[in-house]
Design a protein around this nucleic acid. Structure first.
Lengths: 338, 338
DNA sequence: CTGAAAGCGCTTACAG
DNA sequence: CTGAAAGCGCTTACAG
């Protein structure tokens, strides 16, 4: 910048003005400076200019998600980036993989960078450590999971209501012996989905049988095994409710493997690509990650803009998508798989 | 920082030393400063420290991909972030959606931020504009597509060889009338995949029939329609080679819709979730986005580290995954669909 | 409309 | 081992 000023024969202030306000600088000088800048291949340094500017923040937000290789995380990222782009803000994104320590390290990093705001799908159980960052003036919005031990905005989907609806949908086809497969992470949405399952059982007056409830399944293989085990029991379930798309995949694999895909009903929480291409199509309670990301990002930008309204939780609805697997009747041929 | 120094009764230099080198500062002073920092809830400002440091770069790389909602882009992002995390470097990522203007704007933004390096899956046709940025000392590595009108490192998959292999695989089951569906973007990998297709036809001595070649299909619906049209012709193809997973989806939809999924062979380029769950499973030439991202990121960090070796292109192999759809014989019941 | 000066929050020789 | 001073590349009152 100094050399540009020298070459154009003006002061640093003037060069700065040319690259910002543009107003109150004469045409003649503007073109002289531009020419010099071009000749020297000058590029303004954003970091330096941010530093001197009012709040000294870099027009960047941080985004901490679980794993961008997941549909859900990827959709959130995409929606967030779209909103951020509208505000000419960049996104610094990282994957947590459920690692709470990594979360803390990345948050510290983002704070040292003075990001304008933070969007987070937390991996940690306790987010009270973020209180300092909030005090320091960094707005934080939680996605998918509400904060624990911290007052902050959040955007979640109606996990309990969605699960309830999914299980009631199975009951509508006559099912009363409905298995539950859920993730182990008790403080995650999995807990609420289980609550919805229990509530549905209560409403239809079905008994809760721990033999067909598994709340410690985290992988496709685990779900496939759990599903097979339940099916080989003396009183196998006539329907399955899987609380995560990964677990739905496992259940599908086992059902297809045993040739039972048209004999046992299945409703999954969370959609997945090609679920509509399978035969039968997989009936799901779909959550809208795109909307969760968009709404969360918009909330964040309101906060960044100075919005002081009370902290709140926004709930994004789920949608039951009927495709076949969830409408298989309870009186389809039963008994042990052959 | 100033108040920390005041509270601890030391100079700014000392505070700075405590938060960096840590060496040559007495234990007593260190603890005094730490205490003051804690009390004031002090957080160092990375931007300011970067500015004063040797190269003034923010330990950040830029990543421009097409659309993180795509499996391919997401896998690249994930691999790049993993490598960057190893180097304690953050990733600023944006989606281009094939928009060349957006690409230029985002590149300018990243350069103004003085990112340490740039990874790009270009949307533009001509990347000569990046020459300035290279001169300014920002290493650039291309992913998926080699640079045009610019000398830069790149990591691509063996598009032509992969397509060749996929088509040859179809020929092995007796097919000679093999349709091609490809994207319109001629300077993208689509062009090379088409070249592989043509080469395979040449090798097996089959004639190239433009009636069953479509190089302007970019959507699932478009592929489904093109596939249906070809099937309803007087001399329909006995097999399909689709040069993109989106197009493979369209072909599958049409084949299943017409009940022909076991009568026409199909090999697709690029895998997709659940292709292994479909019946028949979809045989694909899979590219390894994860490896492309990892290798590209590692190359970038070598360059950032000062590596001056000659610019080069690294080719990541593809893998033929046999699942059923590609092994359907040419003499399966043919004729017009009923 | 333009320039000289101070300063953003930090680091880095240079003294002591 | 510690401090005073200069400076990273820019912006912003304050004069003129």
């Amino acid at each position: 910048m100094r050399s540009v000023a020298a070459l154009a024969g003006v002061s640093l202030s003037t060069v700065s003005r040319v690259f910002n306000a543009e107003a109150e600088v004469s045409q003649e000088v503007v073109s002289r400076v531009r020419k010099a800048a071009l000749q020297l291949n000058y590029q303004p340094n954003r970091a330096a200019s941010d530093l001197r500017r009012r709040d000294g923040r870099p027009s960047t937000i941080g985004l901490l998600i679980q794993d961008v290789a997941n549909e859900f995380s990827a959709s959130i990222f995409r929606a967030v980036e779209d909103v951020a782009a509208k505000y000419s803000v960049s996104v610094l994104a990282s994957n947590l993989d459920g690692d709470a320590e990594r979360e803390r390290a990345l948050v510290a990093n983002l704070m040292a960078r003075r990001v304008n705001g933070l969007l987070i799908v937390p991996a940690s159980y306790d987010q009270s450590y973020l209180h300092f960052q909030q005090q320091a003036g960094t707005p934080i919005v939680f996605l998918d999971r509400p904060p624990l031990f911290l007052a902050a905005d959040s955007v979640v989907c109606d996990n309990e209501a969605g699960a309830f609806r999914g299980v009631m949908h199975l009951a509508k086809s006559g099912h009363r012996r409905i298995a539950f497969l859920g993730e182990s992470n008790a403080h995650s949405p999995a807990g609420q989905r289980y609550a919805g399952y229990r509530e549905a059982l209560r409403v239809i007056g079905a008994e809760l049988d721990v033999a067909i409830v598994r709340r410690d399944v985290d992988t496709v293989d685990g779900a496939a095994a759990a599903c097979a085990e339940m099916l080989s029991s003396d009183v196998p379930p006539t329907a399955f409710f899987t609380a995560h798309n990964r677990l739905t995949l496992g259940a599908v694999r086992t059902l297809v493997g045993l040739g039972l895909e048209y004999r046992r009903a299945l409703v999954g929480f969370d959609d997945f690509p090609l679920f509509d291409f399978l035969r039968p199509g997989i009936t799901v309670v779909a959550q809208d990650a795109r909307t969760i990301g968009r709404v969360g990002a918009e909330r964040l930008f309101e906060r960044i803009g100075g919005d002081k309204s009370p902290i709140g939780q926004q709930v994004v609805g789920t949608r039951l998508i009927v495709r076949g697997s969830g409408e298989i009747p309870a009186d389809a041929p039963s008994g042990r798989p052959t």
